[in-house]
């Protein structure tokens, strides 16, 4: 999908091509793995400087695995991850270390991702110690600065994570992630565990920090309304593949893929006077272990096709500028119009 004439390609911070992450599945204690869980199965994705890419999908679609593979907490099975003009898909842990300055991650549950035996100061100092930056005085000043940036008082430094509420803990997680002024932060469901009023505080913080620091986000979440608010471009994942991607409101105003349409129609709206037509999908999401051949969505789509057509692969095609969709007779209502363009 990237051509040499693509003027954008040079400006990319992250450029992922054909990424696959397959996990071997063992069936018995003694048997060797024969089956594979295809958690991520061929994803192309690019993020520019200062951009937020929202990645949505339901549980098990592979969005978190994709995020972990990009920041190399997992080893990809196949494909390229170009970050800052360097291929990082095959780098060792040691070779990755200097790059960690530029790529950080914020997890869903800060209670689990923050070391409970360390004070906030120790948590926030650690990145500087690992990267061998500055002396104690420098680090103390940095800790103070970071706490201020994420809206915590400086006296928070000498307390432990458990002394804070969920929202405050997420602020600490964000402070740690921005400590080294990274260029990209992978946010893996950062607000899903938080209450509504706290969720909006954290989203505001992330948007403020982006304005201030020019950081890019890969924002992974299952809540489309949340993703919409923060993202410049949004990709929808289904069973290991991106099925649709579009800038800003385009995805919400002109969804093309039937799965995106169903997803949008399923969101309950906080407006009792609005009753929406709901698209109910057939059956359940198939297992990523030995997924059905061809188009993964065909057998659930409201557009029914024969098994023969379902077992053919779709192709990922641009239908309007920046708007990509998995084109297949079962996934797109005006298939012929788009296919003949």
């Amino acid at each position: 999908m990237v051509t040499s004439t693509d003027s954008l390609s040079e400006a990319q911070l992250l450029d992922v091509k054909g990424l696959k992450v397959h996990f071997p599945v063992k069936e018995g204690v003694f048997s060797r793995a024969k089956k594979f869980c295809k958690a991520v199965d061929g994803v192309d994705l690019r993020i520019g400087p200062g951009e937020t890419y929202g990645l949505v999908g339901e549980s098990g679609c592979g969005k978190s695995t994709l995020g972990k593979a990009i920041c190399r907490l997992l080893k990809p099975t196949q494909g390229e991850i170009n970050f800052l003009d360097q291929e990082i898909g095959n780098l060792s842990r040691a070779a990755m270390r200097p790059l960690r300055r530029d790529m950080q991650i914020v997890f869903q549950d800060p209670a689990e991702s923050l070391n409970s035996r360390h004070t906030v100061r120790e948590i926030l100092e650690e990145p500087f110690i690992i990267q061998k930056i500055g002396d104690q005085a420098f680090r103390n000043a940095k800790v103070e600065e970071l706490l201020d940036k994420v809206g915590l008082e400086s006296k928070a430094a000498d307390r432990y994570p458990f002394e804070f509420s969920g929202g405050q803990r997420q602020r600490i997680g964000i402070a740690r992630a921005i400590a080294l002024e990274p260029k990209l932060i992978i946010c893996d469901e950062p607000v899903s565990a938080l209450d509504v009023s706290v969720q909006s505080q954290i989203l505001n913080l992330l948007m403020d920090l982006q304005k201030e620091m020019g950081v890019s986000y890969l924002f992974i979440a299952h809540d489309l309304a949340v993703v919409r608010v923060i993202s410049d471009r949004i990709g929808v994942m289904y069973l290991g593949k991106l099925v649709e991607e579009a800038p800003g409101d385009e995805l919400f105003n002109n969804p093309v893929h039937e799965y995106t349409k169903a997803l949008l129609s399923a969101i309950p709206t906080p407006d009792p006077s609005r009753k929406r037509e709901r698209i109910v999908l057939r059956g359940d999401v198939p297992s990523p272990i030995d997924p059905p051949p061809g188009c993964a969505f065909a057998r659930r789509s409201p557009i029914e096709v024969s098994e023969e057509i379902a077992s053919q692969d779709g192709r990922y095609q641009e239908v309007s500028p920046g708007h990509w969709v998995e084109l297949h007779p079962a996934t797109v209502a005006d298939y012929d119009t788009y296919a003949n363009r």
Binding site: V196, S197, Q199, S200, Q201, L203, N204, M207, D208, D223, L224, A225, V226, R228, V229, I230, S231, D232, G248, D249, F252, L264, I267, T269, P270
Partner: peptide, 20 residues
């Protein structure tokens, strides 16, 4: 406050949300 702080499908994008 609660009603104002939820992101909606028609709230402005890339703009700060109301908070409590």
């Amino acid at each position: 406050g609660l009603l104002n702080s939820i992101p909606r499908l028609d709230s402005p994008r890339k703009q700060r949300l109301n908070t409590i």
